[in-house]
Design a protein around this nucleic acid. Structure first.
Lengths: 327, 327
DNA sequence: ATATTATATGTAACCGGTTACACACTGAGA
DNA sequence: TCTCAGTGTGTAACCGGTTACATATAATAT
């Protein structure tokens, strides 16, 4: 392995000069620069990031903390984070937290010892002290951590209004809203959006809380549908729930979209594969991840960030579970 | 930050003794051990992994190189890798390669500079020199790299035989096999399995190559189904293709499973959400990831590994796209 | 009694960089 | 001519550990 000393020797300068040149810090004459460039080239020298980290106390590692990569929402996010990180020369460490504060804390501690550059976090531990005191750049994704921490999320309320109106416009008179867990900010925003839109209308509605889990959703909806045959539209706060609702509809024997229309929320790939294809309010997850990463890197590199809150617009994707367009 | 020097001073010993005690290397007397333990405790000392890495030239980072975390096969794998890594004190770096040798190579180089402990790799660049010459422990996942590199994969051939026989037993007489890309080892093994089983029978069959991509598969199957109304069974080499086939069937108006039975391969979560639920030959992806990680860590820690090839059994999950059991 | 081995510890070099500090030179302004 | 700011460079300390080597003592073998 060639070291900075080898380069210095070859270039006929001191290691300090080489370092200064490489980091573009301090004064370096044109000749010295040329000599060093040549030596680096010739020796194929590559700086050792570990040695550097040891005294700068910085690395180019970014920690991505999310509940569970297995949840269909996150892979695309992770992908975006990694893509952007790569272009800026950062590397992504994957951390599944299971929403467990202990695990989160543990990861933060462990990675801080490695001089991690920053974190992108999706968590409910909004104001857990391990974030407030982390003393390292953080960007929150999807769910706000606290006001001081920049946050990137979808325009959930807007999206819910959009979805509700789509159902209304297609003639639904009796809508079931599948509300997500109350601990989740995005779920609450979606609920607010639904309420805002539905109350503008004359339609009847009911709200049922429903975890973002396929089988559970299916069972809940199956039950509700049996009790309430008059329901002609379902707006689910997640695609997984919507998929459960769709299955429930088929089990209960209600034709989608003729007798019952369904709209999901998220826009995961699976929606397309269902029959009929799932109409959904799609989040631009990739974009969220990309923005979050860029903001984080700006923070890391001490550039000014203009704002502290980024809302990524959602988009209605119309497929077969609503009537507007057949498939 | 408290350093090893602080601990040494507090314990009244030299840094060498502290280091020896902490690493359980060399001789340390009982008294010294006690003093150091107390000092560590009192100062809440935690060893700096970067400083250590600098001279051991080792870290506790594991690189996970896979084509695309967005592909539904990989999140569970990543999850398993991370879970196991965590219990052994390792941290996972996520690398999406897009099957691009340049990217793979680049990641390997970059991470080697960080003294990465080892890699878990899913790649087709079977014997690319950057693996052979990586000079760092590697375990291959799903697809073999070369004989010297331990490999963990599913029992693909066995699984394909199992799936084919299931179709046969349910009375299929004319089976369409959706073969995966020829560059992929697992796809070839599945093809072999299918051929072995089908040739034992009197059933007619045809084979069509089909990428692991939903819309493409759907279109291909739609076309084939129109041309060949006699097809009464489809065995897809992947669940995504099977989902495409299922959708194609519904578009072409063939009832599943009455007129046409479908079996997929992989066992991704999405299969359950389809209507009818997808019968599939499920891989135990989590287990594959877990085994791979354990094997890698053994290699890293210079323990003997018994074998160089691990086959994880697959399992037939019967749902609604085959007749055996309704839903 | 002496040689040998196992146990125990400290000193200092080293891993591969960054950077504070000292020093030298140049040219402009007083 | 003297001063001073700006430019350029090297020496050596430092980041926080590990480890080769030297040294010392106790226990065992011969």
């Amino acid at each position: 392995m060639t070291t900075i000393k080898d380069v210095a020797k070859k270039a006929g300068v001191s290691v300090a000069t080489v370092s200064r040149f490489l980091n573009d810090s301090g004064y370096v004459s044109a000749e010295a620069a040329k000599a060093v460039t040549a030596a680096v080239e010739e020796l194929k020298y590559e700086l050792n990031p570990i040695a550097r980290s040891l005294n700068t106390k910085k690395s180019n590692l970014i920690g991505l903390i999310l509940p569970d990569i297995t949840n269909p929402f996150f892979p695309e996010l992770a992908r975006a984070v990694e893509d952007v990180a790569l272009t800026y020369g950062y590397t992504v460490v994957l951390c599944n937290s299971d929403e467990n504060p202990e695990k989160e804390k543990n990861y933060i501690e462990t990675l801080k010892k490695k001089y991690i550059a920053g974190f992108i976090v999706t968590s409910n531990q909004l104001d857990a002290p391990h974030y407030a005191n982390a003393n390292v750049p953080i960007v929150a994704l999807d769910r706000a951590i606290n006001e001081k921490i920049p946050t990137v999320s979808s325009n959930n309320k807007e999206g819910a209004i959009m979805g509700t109106n789509a159902l209304l416009e297609q003639g639904c008179q009796n809508i079931l809203f599948l509300r997500g867990p109350a601990e989740l900010n995005p779920a609450n925003d979606r609920y607010e959006g639904f309420m805002a839109a539905i109350q503008q209308s004359n339609a009847k509605y009911q709200v049922v809380t429903c975890p973002f889990h396929f089988t559970d959703s299916q069972k809940i909806v199956e039950h509700v549908l049996k009790e309430n045959p008059q329901i002609d539209g379902i707006f689910a706060s997640s695609d997984v729930s919507a998929a459960g609702a769709l299955k429930a509809a088929s089990l209960v024997g209600r034709h989608v979209p003729n007798e019952l229309q369904i709209i999901g929320f998220d826009g995961v790939a699976m929606g397309e594969m269902l029959s009929p294809g799932l109409t959904t309010v799609a989040q631009d997850v990739y974009k969220m991840g990309a923005i979050a990463t860029r903001v984080l890197i700006k923070r890391i590199e001490n550039e000014m960030v203009e704002q502290n809150f980024y809302e990524v617009p959602v988009k209605l994707i119309v497929r077969g579970t609503t009537r507007s367009v057949g498939e």
